[in-house]
Amino acid sequence: MDIAQRVKEVVSRQLNVRLENIKEDSDFVNDLGADSMASIELVAAFESEFDIEMDEDEALQVKNVGEAVKYIENVIKEQQA
């Protein structure tokens, strides 16, 4: 399964949003209802799903699903290097 699909599944599970309603440009706060605490859980869930460690400040600045996919791809590349 590609990273984008896995990201969407984590978002769906954590934020309790139907998978088909999660788009690349879905904004975590405005479209998916992630408050500050849900965002922290989402970061932890991404780390667990991809077995990576993300910088909290950087991760919490990611605004939408597409940005999250790109950010996670970069972290995976860096940490596999």
Binding site: M37, I40, E41, V43, A44, D55, E56, D57, L60
Partner: peptide, 16 residues
Amino acid sequence: CWYLNDKVTKGRGMKK
């Protein structure tokens, strides 16, 4: 850590 919704997370990080 931040313990949220019955889960352990690293919260907003050590610096914060």
